[in-house]
């Protein structure tokens, strides 16, 4: 069970403090998937890295907790983090070609993971574990892949290998950060299917990050919509997609191309994401919101539970509840 509660993450840079994640809470049960959706810069990767215990040195999780089976990742020291990474939680990234050191074979990389995370000192044992992980992700000809260098494999194969590397030490949580963005459409679908299967057979709690709401439904029971680090809406996938409550979610859904709606209906969201160093006061979305009210410029909306989900919008807050 992955449980994130009230998480805040900031980057400390020479240009100032960037508050990348601000008050995010959710749970993911074993065998279930949660999709994190948001525009570029909304803090998806930062959130993923915080869960994976791999925030860069200039980042700090200032508030909240990330618990996996009860243990708070954010409270661990460097040594404990090293132990937990891979074994309890792991992550795959957008660019599979950049995820591997080009000077080492796949077998050397996977072998080292097996040696260090599963304690397999014997060379043949480590190789066997690497082979098993490759078979688990449906890799054809795993023996050949082990002896290959990263540049000898295609992007789709490498993404499979990356998933194999991540699940090799049998983590409970897997964060997939836009794992299909750099792949072509048929491969995207295969990777989604693979993640679905692994999630169910291995009982993984899957956190799937994407900026494409369209593929969210393929892998995830729940959707979390992020905007400028804020959690704007969280709920079951079908609910969120069919009856979005937050104006931002509604706008995002308008952006998904659909054959049943015919041409000319795609509406890009007007305006752009605010500079993370100078967020607007009140609700962060108000400058772009079609339903903006006076109060939105002053008050920060609190997440409220409504219709099986959580939404942060003043349209649904307190006295204005349900008035839309």
């Amino acid at each position: 069970m992955l449980e994130v509660r009230g998480l805040h993450v900031s980057y400390y840079t020479l240009g100032g403090v960037i508050r990348a994640v601000r008050g995010v809470s959710f749970r993911v049960s074993p065998g279930k998937g949660l999709c994190i959706v948001g525009e570029s810069g909304s803090g998806k990767t930062t959130l993923g890295l915080a869960i994976a215990g791999a925030l860069p040195p200039n980042a700090r999780a200032s508030r909240g907790s990330v618990r996996i089976d009860g243990a708070n990742i954010l409270e661990l020291g460097p040594e404990d983090l090293e132990r937990v990474r891979g074994s309890l939680v792991s992550m795959v990234f957008q660019d599979p070609a950049a995820s591997f050191n080009p000077l080492f074979t796949i077998g050397q990389t996977l072998g080292d993971i097996a040696r260090h995370k599963l304690g397999l000192a014997e060379r043949s044992e480590a190789r066997e574990a690497a082979l098993a992980a490759l078979r688990r992700v449906g890799m054809p000809d795993p023996e050949r892949v082990l002896d290959a260098y990263p540049h000898e494999l295609s992007g789709g194969m490498l993404q499979r290998v990356a998933i194999a590397a991540a699940i090799l030490p049998r983590p409970k949580v897997l964060v997939a950060d836009e794992p299909t963005t750099m792949l072509d459409v048929t491969l995207q679908y295969q990777i989604l299917k693979l993640l679905n299967r692994l999630k169910e057979t291995l009982g993984l709690a899957l956190v799937f990050i994407t900026h494409n709401l369209g593929i969210a439904a393929e892998v995830c029971e729940d959707i979390l919509v992020l905007y400028a680090g804020h959690m704007v809406e969280l709920g079951p996938t079908d609910k969120v997609l069919e009856e979005p409550l937050h104006p931002y979610t509604q706008a995002l859904i308008e952006c998904i191309p659909r054959i049943d709606r015919g041409p000319g209906r795609l509406k890009p969201i007007p305006g752009s994401m605010p500079d993370p160093r100078r967020l607007p006061g009140g609700c962060v979305f108000h400058p772009r919101c079609p339903h903006v009210m006076d109060i939105c410029r002053e008050r920060d909306p609190r997440p409220v539970a409504l219709d099986k989900r959580v939404v942060s919008c003043l349209l649904y807050n307190g006295e204005k509840g349900g008035a839309r």
Partner: peptide, 8 residues
Amino acid sequence: SLQVWGLP
């Protein structure tokens, strides 16, 4: 990524 996958 190697560190995220758990290598020291």
